[in-house]
Simulated scan of single mutants.
Amino acid sequence: MRRLVLCGALVLLGSACGSPQQAADTSTLPTAPATTTTPPSGGSVVPVPPTTGAPETPASTRCTASSLAGEVGSVDSGAGNRYAKFVVANNGSAQCTLNGYSGFQLLDGAGQPLPTNLQRTEDPAPVPITLPPGAQAAANLRWTVVATGDEPVEGPCEPEPAKAAAIPPDETQPMTVAWSHGPVCGGGKIEISAFYPA
């Protein structure tokens, strides 16, 4: 009778009634109480999307001759020197990056190379430039029209170029730009800066 009363009490408490061995073998782990969030009066629970970080920017690739158009701008003169800017524009449909110096080879009307002695200057020095479609960059050019060494004083000091082959930084294929600024003396010496935003 005592066992039945005890078993009945255990049933009321939600415990299984069985042998003492079964009760010893059964263990119950405590659980944390459930928590609920009550929205403000009249409100509703709105799910918050996970944070994805900053929006991605389009990847840039190097500017190539096929994505650029170039020209040598107007010329300033002083003390036998000539100054101009070699300007390139991104004619592609995606942004591209320039970082460094352009190659620059003077050519005659038939596309044959003429004496060219390209010298890099660090004014300004190279920095990466991202060009969105339509944006421009420039490099400074300086050359002399004064004959030097054994160049003739009468007449042109060097053959007159008709164009130039310009190779974007870290590329191998050139683009052709017109040259209408006369001979380049000093064996075709041209000082060129790195590209900078124009």
Rank of each mutant, 00 (worst) to 15 (best):
G42W: 00
S19H: 11
G53T: 02
V87E: 10
V11C: 05
V146N: 13
T35I: 05
D150C: 02
Q95N: 14
R2P: 07
D123E: 11
L118W: 13
A59N: 06
Q136M: 10
T64C: 04
T148F: 04
C63Y: 03
L4M: 05
Q21L: 15
L6G: 12
V153R: 04
A16W: 09
A198P: 08
G78C: 05
T144Q: 09
V177C: 07
L107P: 06
T116W: 07
A166I: 15
N99K: 04
I167N: 11
V127W: 03
Q22P: 10
A84F: 06
P39K: 00
L29I: 09
A89G: 03
T26N: 09
A110T: 12
L13Y: 07
T144P: 12
G182T: 01
F104P: 12
L114H: 04
I190A: 02
S180T: 15
L131I: 13
A138Y: 11
P159C: 00
R2D: 08
A137P: 10
M175T: 08
T176C: 06
Q136R: 15
S44A: 01
Q119T: 10
E71I: 05
P33I: 01
S102N: 14
T172C: 06
V48Q: 01
R2L: 09
G42A: 00
A138V: 10
G149F: 03
E56S: 07
V5F: 12
P183V: 00
V48W: 00
Y196M: 04
A79C: 02
I192P: 09
L98M: 03
I190D: 03
H181E: 09
S74V: 13
N91T: 15
G100R: 04
E158R: 00
G109A: 15
P33F: 01
A165E: 14
L4Q: 06
A34L: 04
P169M: 01
G155H: 03
R2V: 09
P30S: 02
